[in-house]
Design a protein around this nucleic acid. Structure first.
Lengths: 224, 224
DNA sequence: CGTACTCTTGAACAATATCAAATAAAGTGG
DNA sequence: CCACTTTATTTGATATTGTTCAAGAGTACG
């Protein structure tokens, strides 16, 4: 299996460096100590953990603008793997801590990012606790549609495998495949190939996923 | 249904006031705006949300020392209900925000608390995604054992109903009951009554819950 | 005591996992 | 560019787990 080296373009005067990873490369591994912080510039990253009994739980598919597995513990609770070519802005742990102490504006941003990550995790827990397979996949299709731009052919690309989706949704890859093809049969999505789709009936999926239109209002967040 | 009024013991010079709630009273409701922050002094609180389709998801059973549903959004994403008589230290939203801006020490504490809440939520998501009913209940029994002190009779009290446990673990109350009684049959727990138990074989439950002994090391957290 | 809960237990049912095979797509080396 | 190999996806048949429905047993409370 080939090994990849990240390309470092260090700017002597800047705390953050640009890093580039090819598809399938790891940004870091579960258990890494004193790792720094990545903010994605381009590409998609899977953030996952492997449990004691060998199950893989994908916590997030992160994209441009997202911090990867942002948390305060210095030992990484997760691994992060590039799904495609990925560029990140990387800050060493040391520089990150220094900035947190010194810059109020940065501190506020990180504060809110961690709060958002927390809200996402709670949302995911609710999804896993309360919703059936069809509803989970519906929710995920809506996520794909809203987070990935359509390509030239008009179809939204599906960059992760059925297994990746399954490990994120707490299902098996067969069940994910069945639900997607059921949506296809029912004309809810157009999926000419397994790796691309286009939404035909958003309303139907939103109803399944339990997203009401009125539940879309914004919440004020604290000024800090 | 009776309504309860919280007892306010305001100290004019202090930002925080002591509040007392009887069992079954709500500290606040999902959707409340500009609500303040509670830190539990004594008693147990269930933090839950109700989804659009009416499912109740219990996010946490919080006890002394815990902040109740600490997050930065001012509209409460959850409701909080007292399981027993509960005392809290309450700070208004306004005072909370002021303290956050002014006191570095307090800010750090809150920062870490939110980070911890985030880690808990991710842990819960992993539990729901990867573990079967028996393993989830095993994990919960260990939680009960470690968070609630035994009473005079030597048994650890179970303060929540089977339904509460079910809504926390993503199961039905019947399944929870079956698993608990299976543990009882197998001599893993001693449960003379439905509302108290004592652990007989911790090792067995730890193995089920996927808790290795070596996974117990502490992680360094950032100084901030 | 009797009424109302909550908990337990059983049986039938439904959803999803598991196992296995067939198909499709994507690399690989000539 | 084409056969060949490998990997991912789809689909079907069966097994398992947990839910649902229903009834009975404790327990609490007036």
């Amino acid at each position: 299996m080939a090994r990849f080296a990240a390309v470092h373009e260090a700017h002597a005067t800047l705390a953050s460096t640009r890093q580039v990873y090819p598809a399938r490369a790891h940004l870091f591994h579960q258990g890494d100590i004193e790792r720094g912080i990545h903010k994605i510039v381009s590409g998609t990253v899977t953030v996952y953990r492997v449990t004691a009994d060998g199950h893989r739980q994908i916590e997030a598919f992160s994209g441009p603008g997202d911090y990867v597995s942002l948390c305060l513990c210095t030992t990484s609770p997760t691994s992060a793997e590039a799904l495609s070519r990925v560029e990140t802005n990387y800050v060493s742990r040391e520089a990150f801590e220094r900035r947190l102490l010194q810059e109020a504006q940065f501190r506020q941003t990180v504060f809110h990012e961690i709060d958002k990550a927390s809200a996402d995790a709670r949302r995911q827990a609710t999804l896993l606790a309360c919703r059936c397979a069809k509803e989970r996949v519906a929710d995920f299709v809506l996520f794909l549609d809203s987070h990935f731009a359509p390509e030239a052919d008009g179809y939204t690309p599906i960059r992760m495998s059925r297994c990746d989706m399954a490990d994120h949704l707490g299902l098996t890859l067969e069940t994910v495949s069945r639900m997607l093809n059921q949506f296809k049969q029912d004309g809810v999505i157009d999926m000419p190939r397994a790796d691309r789709f286009s939404l035909k009936n958003r309303q139907y999926l939103k109803r399944l996923a339990g997203q009401n239109d009125e539940a879309d209002r914004r919440h004020r967040r604290m000024a800090l």
